[in-house]
Nucleic acid binder design. Structure first.
Length: 490
RNA sequence: GGCGGCGUAGCCAAGUGGCCAAGGCAGUGGUCUGCAAAACCAUUAUUCAGCGGUUCGACUCCGCUCGCCGCCUCCA
């Protein structure tokens, strides 16, 4: 089996064939650091985190580069508003970015270059483009001449005529063609600036990715990723710059993930409907966010809602509950007990990893892969159900092995990484803090009910249970006594 | 206006032409239980927005219609 990936450039799913055997070189556009990250940024980071983890699980060596845009108009403007320098502002939000990413359990890329540390490399590429007649200086700016790149528009499937018909292009008399884009911007007084052959200034947005990907991954590399909104103009312009300067193919496979939406609309600052990662983590465990994100294929829109998060919570708790139940088993069974595990169960367990891989090989279909985890949890629960008080040691070995496999596969999505019982207890505490009940009161009532039950005083027993239920506490009588959970409302 | 995508059960969501259209949440019946809860078993779309076409056969391919969304300006 081989991995197939949807390539935006060709519009097809293609077999992954790294240019260098077994070594995938990946470049992802990171954030512009001028504000806290929202859940759209989280989706991007999570999607590529999952992709990299899966490729490594499949024994590929991965070189993963993700940049920081730490100089740009938004940063300069925001810094001016806050009476700070663009450097300090960018640094601060890079720091905040790491805080969020760490909480989400996202692995650091292998390299995280910053634009401001690669000005020379950018100047170099711009010079090459000017030498080739593909870029020109106009005033203090340097522009890319899109007409010199015959394939301009190949990624976003549009042509220069159509785009100009769109007529949403700002008029700039310096440009030879309205679609020409800036490579180097002359600086205005007070703005951050670097020396260049064209005077003091700063780089345009797109050039940093061409310069940094070339430096760290070479002229041609395997995969370049980002959000769908980067297809045009950002990635289109990167192709024009890199292929123009290098004279060879830039990227083999382009991966673009879908947006996070709220009420089916894209989150955006202008609509003021965005949620920051830390806002969300106030209310939900990071793995719940991960579960939610991976419950939809990465290219489809992901609609955020409280209900969706509750569904994700219920789903993740179900998986953790199955793991916790196996964790709670003793490890030494009886060698002379009969096995309760059927051949069908064994077969299903053997197929779990294969089915998981089949789903993930198909353009990283994490939604389908999750369903395999649920099937495994169901099998575990079914076996547990039929387990005698003194289970066969072979059956215990089987259950522990199944649990370990489920955890190994879930880890590719960053799920089930916590101790299961600890996770469930923490969720219970979180629910408890939202209602007007404390543990001591609950325990006292459970004890009173235990006494009532021991005398078969069912009336009082049920009264206590109903009273607790009125406070959303649900009781569960088991062989080892009574436990409780906080019932989910709404 | 140009380009791209989506429309699958009450909700969410997979489905790379052909065994009964995954899985989750919710619901219903049963097992278990003093009664419950959890779990398990069963059940819940003769049908995949609508209409045509290609095919022995389409949710899957093609065309048209309707509805929704995105990009074309900064954006994950």
């Amino acid at each position: 089996m081989t991995i197939h990936i949807y390539n935006t450039l060709t519009g097809k799913k293609e077999r992954l064939e790294p240019l260098e055997p077994n070594h995938v070189k990946l470049y992802v556009c990171g954030i512009t650091s001028y504000d806290f990250c929202h859940i759209g940024h989280a989706r991007s980071a999570l999607a590529f985190d999952m992709i990299v983890k899966y490729l490594r699980y499949r024994n590929y060596k991965v070189t993963y580069v993700r940049n920081f845009t730490d100089i740009d108009d938004k940063i300069i403007n925001r810094a001016a508003e806050q009476n700070t320098s663009s450097f300090e502002l960018a640094d601060r939000f890079i720091h905040e970015f790491y805080t969020d990413m760490d909480r989400l359990g996202i692995d650091r890329p292998d390299m995280e270059p910053k634009a401001t540390e690669h000005i020379q490399e950018m100047v170099q590429i711009i010079s090459e483009l000017i030498d080739k007649g593909m870029a020109y200086q106009a005033g203090n700016d340097v522009y890319y001449a899109v007409e010199t790149f015959s394939e301009y528009g190949k990624l976003s499937r549009r042509n220069l005529e159509d785009m100009q018909a769109g007529a949403r292009i700002s008029v700039n008399e310096m440009k030879r063609n309205p679609m020409d884009f800036v490579l180097w911007k002359g600086s205005k007084p007070g703005e951050p600036k670097w020396d260049s052959p064209w005077g003091e200034g700063r780089p345009g947005w797109h050039i940093e990715c061409s310069a940094m990907s070339r430096k760290y991954l070479g002229n041609t590399f395997d995969i370049h990723g980002g959000g769908k909104d980067l297809i045009f103009p950002h990635h289109e312009n990167e192709i024009a710059q890199s292929e123009g300067a290098n004279g060879c193919s830039f990227v083999k496979t382009w991966i673009h993930h879908g947006f996070v939406t709220i009420r089916d609309e894209k989150m955006s600052k202008s609509l003021n409907n965005f949620l920051t990662i830390r806002d969300l983590l106030e209310h939900y465990h990071p793995e719940i966010l991960r579960f939610f994100v991976f419950s939809t294929h990465y290219r489809n829109p992901l609609d955020f809602s409280e209900l969706a998060m509750q569904d994700a919570t219920a789903g993740l708790e179900r998986l953790y509950a199955a793991i916790a139940a196996v964790d709670a088993l003793t490890t030494d069974g009886r060698s002379d007990s009969d096995s309760v595990i059927t051949d069908k169960d064994r077969q299903q367990m053997l197929s779990i990893e294969e089915r998981f891989q089949k789903a993930m090989d198909n353009d990283f279909n994490s939604a389908q892969a999750q369903s395999v985890l649920f099937d495994a949890a169901k099998s575990i629960n079914r076996i547990l159900q039929g387990l005698p008080p003194e289970p066969a040691s072979d059956d215990l070995v089987f259950l522990h092995a199944t649990r370990d496999l489920v955890k190994k596969l879930a880890a590719i999505m960053g799920l089930l990484e916590e101790d299961a019982q600890t996770f469930l207890d923490a969720q219970k505490q979180k629910m408890l803090s939202a209602i007007d009940m404390d543990e001591v009161t609950i325990d006292n009532l459970i004890e009173e009910r235990r006494l009532a039950r021991s005398t078969k005083n069912w009336a009082r027993s049920d009264e206590i249970r109903d009273e607790l239920l009125a406070h959303n506490i649900e009781l569960k009588d088991g062989p080892e006594g009574t436990s409780w959970t906080v019932k989910r409302t709404s």
